[in-house]
Design a protein around this nucleic acid. Structure first.
Lengths: 243, 243
DNA sequence: TCAATAAATGTATTAATTACACAATGCAAA
DNA sequence: TTTGCATTGTGTAATTAATACATTTATTGA
């Protein structure tokens, strides 16, 4: 399959480990082709060129599948980055010249973000250079990926404050505290415990189970599930979080 | 300047005529190259391929300038359409074959919407095929432009409900009724007159002038202006730290 | 001067948001 | 077995925002 040289997708994979928001990044190294000396190392998003005759959304799904092993996860297109000087940093220009010498210097990239429960991505031999970083504390990034991540996060915030997509970041069964920590981590603010629970428990699509948390050294919490089904049917009762 | 054959921008130009929301469309005709018989006619958005070495945002601005004469108006990227079967309607395939025989059949297009006060676009000899249609009552559209318009409108609604961008659609001086009609037209719902005014008049960045509407056959309304300046400053105030 | 039109205005009701503190549970360590 | 620790689970009052609703006023044109 031939790539389309001037078009790529980049995926910002957000993960939540029940504590904080993380972003999946892949280590990039450039070595001198002659001396093998390490020229630089940094981290990048999961991206790849779109293939000829491939839908854009499929390209994003393919990249995710290849880089994380995950299939059919939440994926949302958020912005397309098309400045001609996107690749302007000397290290990036060097990298492109070495790795993709055939690629035009004007590549536009379509940004997607996806939401996964971090536990689902195991540290994998095949992808040992790919790992989670706290969204609050990212390493040095390549290309314009810092900008792409900023935009992804601000789009995610708007989306999360309007639609119940946070469950994509949680295990199927979760506690209300976990849900609250998730909202706080993504939206970057705190909520009052009782007010948060009051709001959540009046949503019919967040359903309490007859089941408790196990293996914790304190009072175990009740566990809940999110019903997409009930949500779709009752979309009228809206979820709105003031940011 | 050479075009990039697989990349275009399409602009959904929204206009408001103090009554309803309109969309600017350009008539498209295809005639048989031999008999000159009219094969079909419909309407399309303002779009064009991106040029080599042109920033995406610049391409959108260029298209607007070319098609409407307008410069530096509100322009917002909202979605990129990249399905391989975007052009699947027989009439569109025929059109591409006739008009752009060199263009690959896989073109992705980046959607922008822009907001203008309709009065600013005069019916112009140079662009007599370009005209306004009520957003509620559009003619037959080419390509996937109906889908693009739907998405543009839903993105505009989200944006308008979060940020004061409606003023881009109004003349500099406007009345509160005009503003209300605008919000109703875009968001597709009605507001109570007194409640709407109560809400608006407590915003510091919507400033009453010592001036009244003239030439109307009823009690003239007070006129207001929007101060982007005040808005930017008061927005920042919200981010202050409590002591 | 009258009719028509849209502007301007206030109050009461309901709903949503915010602020706030302590007892109960289960595990782990002593 | 007792005690300490960590976290869950809960209610009420105060504030703010959203909603519903009707009459008088200024201007133009007939």
């Amino acid at each position: 399959m031939k790539i389309i040289p001037n078009l790529s997708v980049d995926c910002v994979v957000f993960g939540f480990d029940l504590t904080k928001l993380n972003i999946l990044l892949t280590k990039r190294e450039l070595r001198d082709p002659e001396t093998d000396a390490l020229l630089f190392t940094d981290y990048t998003l999961q991206g790849h060129h779109v293939l000829e005759n491939e839908d854009l959304d499929n390209a994003a799904n393919r990249v995710l599948k290849e880089k994380t092993g995950l299939d059919s996860i939440f994926l949302e297109q958020f912005h397309t980055f098309g400045d001609t000087d996107r690749i302007k940093n000397p290290k990036d220009m060097l990298w492109v010249k070495n790795i993709y010498p055939t690629v035009t210097n004007q590549v536009i990239t379509v940004g997607y973000y996806s939401l996964v429960n971090s536990a689902k991505i195991h540290p994998d031999k095949k992808h040992e250079d790919t790992m989670w970083f706290p969204a609050e504390n990212l390493p040095e990034l390549g290309f314009d990926h810092a900008e792409i991540i900023d935009k992804a996060l601000s789009c995610l915030r708007i989306k999360l404050s309007r639609e119940p997509i946070g469950f994509e970041l949680l295990p199927e069964k979760f506690t209300l505290s976990q849900l609250q920590i998730l909202y706080e981590a993504v939206l970057g603010r705190k909520y009052d415990r009782r007010n948060f629970r009051k709001k959540i428990t009046q949503l019919k699509y967040i359903i309490p189970l007859d089941e408790k948390q196990t293996g914790v050294a304190h009072k175990p919490a009740q566990v809940f599930i999110f019903s997409k089904d009930v949500y779709e049917r009752t979309k009228k009762d809206k979820l709105g979080f003031p940011i």
